[in-house]
Write a protein that binds this DNA or RNA. Structure first.
Lengths: 261, 261
DNA sequence: TATTTTTGAGTGAAATTCACTCATTAATGG
DNA sequence: CCATTAATGAGTGAATTTCACTCAAAAATA
């Protein structure tokens, strides 16, 4: 993937030149999953002056692929590079549009309708989902959004438009993809304990897993390598510290070995 | 899904009005799988005057959803209604366009460039795949294509543009979806034998399956009901005739029971 | 009528799943 | 300093599933 970074533009210029540089009526939206250690969360942003929460989105430059647009979005808006990012579905209901929320916003901002009109049309959006280390991302407002924060997976109904539905679909795909362990690797810090890994699985699957059996199955795949003896946490018995063996990862993917928890 | 059928237009009017009624730079393409009894095949069409083969495609009216456009495409072009149809991926490379093949064609046809120009731009296409009963579809040329035929899954490299790749991706998804038996139900006639069902599985998976074990597993799910005693084929011992029990179907889907061959 | 080919049915060893118990470790409280 | 406690690490065995395999049945064919 080449670097298609463009200067971080002011929101108004981003929008006003839109119809010339972007693919018309097309956007991408990314569901970015994180894991607090207990709960599955997704990243939500609040556009300037608009009192709504949405998942991060972008438009597609005429000169870039949709995958590049998705990566650029994360890079420019969140400073995230090198991340697991996967297209999972495209949403194209006939009445899908920003119009309701956007008109108010632009009139407040004093933008001329001839400039933002292209934005109020019906939009088809390509959904991506990503997994990110909860602690490494430091959400900070930029010119593209006023506020940004993690919201619990059970609170997504506060999202505007059809974004709650997009998140639900993404979560269903994530659950299916759970077998491909590389998916969740980026949800965890570089090193972690097996109980932590189990909690992540339980958060995604939404059900409890037997402790002993989980441990056995994971270790049997040889996908983990012990890196430290103990944790500085204040638990009783200190759990072993592990990290993913990236080579074994790819092997498992190619063998299409299903772990099956 | 409402009926959004429009009169079958002449190819030229279909194209010339395009930029006004269709979503710009967006199309859908459908990979339609069939099963000959031995081999997996896909439907390919040849546009008028163009010496290329492509999979069926359409544009999306501003007033219809992408799913409706996909269904309409099959209805208008192939006379197929009520079919299993599933979106599987969107293709959006920066250089994806009909330009190469189309310019020659329209110049031959004497269409003014101002009319077909919108068609030569970069296009993003939403991929759908469908399963159809090989015998029920009777491919016949219409105003939208000059010729149409089934091609073997191993001969898709003759397809133009990135369509071979689209078919490959669809096949990979079909293989994954094979567990959800309803997917393949529409590939078979209403009644069929277990050996026929097994051959279909082998054609999709691309490998041999043990006969006895396959039989056991399928029958254990109670998804089949015996409908006739024997077949009029000229085999040795006549196999039992079965059909899918639609109710049991949905049950299995909801239980998310994996058959796992 | 014997042969051949295909379907239908069954068997058992090997592997996997899954609920469960026991041992180990180190912080905590007295 | 020691018993308690809470968490991790390790193991066990019954039940189930997988999978390669054999045998029986049915009907066309020679």
């Amino acid at each position: 993937m080449e670097d298609n970074t463009r200067p971080q533009e002011e929101i108004s210029s981003h929008i006003q030149g839109g119809e010339k540089q972007f693919m018309p009526q097309l956007s991408i939206n990314s569901v970015i999953f994180g894991f607090t250690g207990e709960r599955l969360v997704v990243l939500a942003t609040q556009p300037p002056m608009a009192e709504i929460w949405v998942i991060p989105g972008e438009f597609v430059y005429q000169t870039e692929s949709i995958d590049e647009a998705a990566h650029r979005s994360l890079r420019q808006q969140l400073g995230i590079d090198e991340i697991f990012l996967r297209q999972f579905r495209t949403f194209g209901e006939a009445d899908r549009s920003f119009a309701g929320q956007m008109v108010d916003y632009f009139e407040k901002a004093g933008v001329d309708k001839s400039k933002y009109g292209w934005l109020t049309k019906r939009f088809v959006t390509i959904g991506y989902y990503a997994c990110a280390d909860f602690r490494k991302i430091e959400p900070q407002p930029s010119s593209l959004f006023e506020d940004i924060r993690w919201i619990d997976i059970d609170e997504i109904d506060l999202l505007a438009m059809d974004h709650a539905n997009i998140v639900r679909e993404a979560r269903a795909v994530l659950t299916r993809d759970l077998l491909d362990l590389p998916v969740i690797a980026s949800l965890l810090p570089d090193t972690f304990t097996i109980p932590e890994l189990q909690k992540l699985h339980e958060a995604i699957l939404g059900r409890a897993i037997d402790r002993g059996n989980f441990r056995q199955k994971v270790l049997r795949t040889n996908i983990l390598e012990k890196v430290g003896e103990r944790n500085t946490a204040n638990t009783r018995r200190p759990p072993g510290l592990y990290r993913f063996n990236r080579n074994r990862y790819r092997e498992l993917l190619e063998e299409e070995v299903k772990i099956g928890f």
